[in-house]
Design a protein around this nucleic acid. Structure first.
Length: 943
RNA sequence: GGGCAUGUAGCUCAGUUGGUUAGAGCACCGCCUUGAUAAGGCGGGGGUCACUGGUUCGAGUCCAGUCCUGCCCA
């Protein structure tokens, strides 16, 4: 009576279902830290280095992030890409050390420190800045390690260490020795907010409203040729009225046509003015002054007035008329106000024409006595615009005044508008080696290729490098001033400073007095140290000297630099310029750029935006709201919520050479891919659970236990596919195309493994006798597939691959393995051709079955009787006459074959009895007395 | 405003020297399965290939222009 129940149960127990402890739920957030701890305890990175010692080297040089703030997703993307490169190069047979670094000096840190406590002594600022930097180095290091990035984390390079600082100074010494450094009073981009000069890379452009005014300058020189009468005024246009006290000249384009004539205003005013012809109309539209055609006018070229003298509108001095080619005719009047102390073009043109450099503005951006207007001394220049306009108006020199909205440079740290201001600064003369740098660019492989043009253009047009900063948190500019004020700048002097710094750090410079240093260097008594520090781009730009050449494991040029696209102007360039100046060649062989992380609406999510959000919290409602709606952008948030492998998979599956879209939704999408891969690994591992122990312990020979001829067609096919997947992935890694690797593997896992191979081989794996040759053959194939995929994924899914490797029975980490090589045995795609035909037939069958299923005639495929018509031509492979093999491939109980004109299939309800064990509907069920509910195969398997 | 990039399904991306009905993965809808089950299978919907014009028998692909977005610069 109850005999059937235990019997049923018994048959179910004889089915060899996949069994594994490899969890379906990844639980990366808790498991990854455990694995990381294991890696660290075992010194995995050091072991990889030891194991790969002696192989061809591959050096990826880490561009140092600022030791400031948490790890942003953009930084995480970059670091993960670096790690994938290093791991894949290692597995491809290289010795690839990774020495991470941090950029420690500079304004961002000093700014925070000074904000927290005012009026600190320089030495104190430096102590606090170092502590600040080290705090964030630790924070970032934890995040990078957590992201699964392998490297010598305990011995990173820091630009604040004495050795590095000394090398910066020695690099400077080389510049000095090559005669590339000079000191000059030149206009620089000055931040009054941060009170320092700024480099090109330290300014950002934002919209600003400025007063745009038209001002007349009376021409003094009487009877100037071609001017028929006197009393004319040149008209200039400027958006910076505050620079007028520094006006020393007026520039005209030598070739433009100018008109001198009488202009009348509606209000009755009349003026005798000179403007460029092309600007007359715009001038009239802005000011209301129209040229009175009835009065005599004179036309002449700008070169005519060269050398004339005009009257400064409110100061008792002249303004010299000069010619300059940079005068344009798209804005203004064709006559440009020249203040050599307040503009780069002005400075150059002024120098050529013998104008002085006047810059009556102090560090805070306030006027000094030199401005010649006592009432303005001590007042901020931007607050003085209105007063100056009032003076002009009072003197009758103001012809027009409007609001002008334009993109204006701002300080990246203090966010204040910058001013051009002439101060004594140190510069590197670029022209002396610009051509060498341009040549060096063409020795480098730029990825993507347009990077070459980008940096070429940058280097071609860049001005001299302003390398001095009036800041405290940086490497001192190692030069001295003699008692008479003259400069003591020699390579030898700087080297002596460097040697002392190497031993004691740069704090020595700030702690000891001038007498100490004069004594140490051997300078005459009374000499004084320079108070400036070096531009931080010299710091990081010197890394090819301070790191690549110094570190025993590295070399120069490095094989690869990879950073965000903004570094064409930043680190790629500063590194290039330093390297070319110092050794004449580029510091890198290949330069890869990654795009910026943007949200899905295509907006840039920058680190400084994120910081702004944090900084501005609570300041006002608007920013608060912005901070609230802002998405978290720290890597920590995402690896703590989704796991590091998810961040890594995201990084590997986007087109990093363009801007990289990022959103929570995208993360969920990545999660789907991840789960698919993981679940597939889980089944594969489950199917290996009864692999012979001897096999597992004699790895990797296990995969070779079944000779190729024992494989069935479907096994040979999947191994052929695997063969080409290996080739594709290796090619993808070699081309730094990780997206290709991910999509290749994803599609293989989803399309070939999950939907076909695993599905088709379920029957033999579950229901065949344990040692049936085809079952063992498939098991061997599964081991090869799993091991191969695990190794291919290891550089990307650093944690999951390692976990899988462990479940494959290996004691040690997958990261000590090399990449698999394509198996030549399966290179000829013999099975692939047959499977192509099989898949065509399968599609036709599935459509027929689906129709029956939708019509509720059948449920599972096994309930169908399928009549398949194959075309007369083709479908010639032996398998098309092997009915059992076809039934297995199509996963059917009952298949009938005919040949006809077209490929076609019809479906009927199968009437055979169902085998209780394998669930197929087969005619021989019930023919075995011992097992009345089983088919022949199952009866035999049960024994 | 200039230089360099970019724009193919809801999302991330393929689309070879121009050549059938533009593909994949994920998402979505329906069905099946419950022996991969917080899984798996099958089927399906979904695209004016940014826009406009041109070359061509034929253009996502080549040419010109426009627009969007990003980087760098002014």
């Amino acid at each position: 009576m109850s005999a059937e129940t235990p019997a049923k149960k018994n048959y179910k127990d004889t089915v060899r279902l996949p069994k594994t402890d490899f969890p379906m739920k990844a639980d990366l957030v808790t498991r990854e830290p455990q694995r990381l701890a294991k890696w660290e305890a075992g010194g995995l990175y050091q072991r990889i280095m030891k194991q790969s010692a002696g192989r061809p080297k591959f050096v990826l040089h880490d561009g140092p992030p600022f030791a400031n703030g948490d790890v942003h997703m953009g930084t995480a993307l970059n670091k993960v890409l670096k790690d994938i490169i290093v791991k894949s190069k290692t597995m491809a047979g290289h010795h690839a050390p990774f020495i991470p670094g941090w950029d420690c000096h500079g304004l961002p840190i000093e700014f925070k420190v000074v904000k927290e406590a005012k009026d600190l002594a320089p030495a104190e600022i430096r102590t606090r800045s170092e502590a600040y930097a080290r705090k964030f180095i630790d924070i970032q290091r934890q995040s990078f390690k957590r992201l699964g990035i392998f490297g010598d984390w305990e011995n990173p390079y820091l630009t604040l260490t004495p050795g590095y600082e000394a090398d910066i100074m020695r690099t400077f010494a080389k510049f000095v020795e090559k005669g590339l450094v000079y000191r000059a009073k030149r206009p620089v981009q000055w931040s009054y907010g941060a009170q320092t000069a700024l480099a090109e890379a330290e300014v950002e452009y934002k919209e600003k409203t400025s007063p745009a005014i038209y001002v007349k300058f009376a021409v003094l020189t009487p009877g100037f040729s071609r001017l028929q009468e006197d009393g004319y005024s040149l008209v200039i246009w400027t958006t910076t009225p505050w620079t007028l006290p520094a006006n020393l000249g007026i520039a005209l384009h030598p070739d433009f046509e100018y008109t001198a004539g009488t202009f009348a205003h509606e209000d009755g005013r009349q003026e005798k003015l000179i403007l460029a012809n092309s600007r007359l109309e715009a001038f009239s539209a802005s000011t209301g002054f129209k040229l009175d055609e009835s009065r005599p006018t004179t036309k002449f070229k700008g070169s005519t007035l060269k050398g004339a003298e005009a009257q400064h509108p409110f100061l008792p001095r002249g303004s010299k008329v000069i010619n300059a080619l940079f005068v344009t005719n798209d804005t203004g009047t064709g006559a440009v106000h020249m203040a050599p102390g307040h503009g780069a073009d002005d400075y150059i043109a002024g120098k050529e024409n013998g104008l002085e450099v006047l810059s009556p503005v102090d560090d805070q951006g306030n006027f000094t006595a030199e401005c010649g207007l006592p009432e303005f001394v001590g007042q901020h220049v931007f607050k003085s615009n209105e007063g100056i306009i009032a003076i002009l108006e009072g003197k009758g020199a103001l012809l027009g005044n409007e609001k002008y909205v334009h993109q204006y440079p701002h300080c990246w740290r203090s966010k204040t508008p910058i001013i051009f201001r002439a101060v004594e600064q140190f510069f590197i003369r670029i022209n002396d080696f610009r051509q060498d740098a341009l040549k060096a660019i063409d020795t480098v492989n730029w990825l993507p290729a347009w990077g070459r043009n980008r940096i070429h253009g940058t280097v071609e047009s860049r001005p001299d490098w302003c390398i001095s900063r009036q800041r405290t948190w940086g490497v001192p500019l190692p030069v001295f001033y003699a008692a008479d004020g003259s400069i003591l700048m020699e390579g030898e002097i700087s080297r002596k400073v460097a040697d002392a710094v190497e031993l004691h750090g740069t704090n020595l410079w700030f702690e000891k007095d001038d007498a100490f240093w004069c004594d140490l260097i051997g300078l005459p008594e009374g000499s004084k140290r320079c108070k400036d520090t070096l531009d931080v781009w010299i710091d990081s730009g010197s890394s090819s000297v301070a790191v690549l050449e110094r570190h025993p494991e590295l070399y120069c040029p490095a094989d690869v630099y990879i950073e965000g696209t903004d570094q064409h102007r930043g680190w790629f360039q500063s590194s290039l310029m330093v390297s070319v100046a110092v050794r004449g060649t580029a510091p890198y062989k290949t330069v890869i750029t990654n795009g910026f992380v943007v949200d899905t609406s295509g907006k840039k999510i920058s680190k400084s935006d994120q910081e702004q959000q944090g900084d501005d919290k609570g300041k006002d409602g608007k920013d608060k709201e912005k901070a609230k709606s802002g998405k978290p952008m720290t890597a920590e948030h995402y690896f703590n919520k989704y796991g590091s492998d998810m961040v890594r998979l995201w990084a590997a599956s986007v087109d990093y050479q363009n801007d990289v879209p990022f959103s929570e939704e995208l993360f969920q999408q990545t999660g789907e891919s991840y789960r698919r891969i993981r679940n597939t690994f889980r089944v594969l591992l489950g199917n290996l659970n009864d692999e012979k122990v001897e096999q597992a312990s004699s790895l990797p020979e296990a995969t070779k236990m079944v000779a190729p001829h024992s494989y069935t067609l479907i096994d040979r096919w999947i191994l052929e596919r695997l063969h080409s997947i290996v080739s594709d992935c290796l090619a993808g890694f070699a081309a730094y195309d990780f997206r290709k690797v991910v999509s290749t593997i994803t599609q293989f896992v989803s399309g070939d493994l999950s939907a076909l191979y695993i599905d088709i081989t379920k029957d033999r794996m579950y229901c065949d006798a344990e040692n049936s040759p085809r079952r063992r053959a498939t098991q061997a194939a599964i081991r090869e597939i799993t091991e191969t995929l695990t190794k291919l994924l290891a550089p990307i899914l650093a944690y999951t691959a390692d976990e899988t490797w462990e479940f494959l029975g290996h004691a040690d980490s997958v990261h000590l393995q090399d990449f698999p090589q394509p198996n030549e045995t399966f290179a000829n795609a013999e099975a692939g051709a047959a499977v192509e035909d099989l898949l065509k037939a399968r599609a036709v069958i599935q459509q027929a079955i689906e129709a029956a299923r939708q019509a509720k005639k059948i449920g599972s495929n096994l309930e169908a009787t399928v009549k398949l018509t194959l075309p007369e031509a083709g479908f010639a492979h032996a398998i098309f006459s092997d009915l059992p093999a076809l039934q297995e491939f199509f996963i059917l109980s009952d298949l009938h074959l005919t040949r006809g004109p077209d490929l076609a299939a019809t479906v009927e309800v199968c009437t055979n009895p169902k085998c209780e064990r394998c669930w197929k509907l087969l005619p021989d069920v019930g023919t075995i007395a011992e097992h009345p509910t089983l088919c022949g195969r199952c009866a035999e398997a049960v024994g």
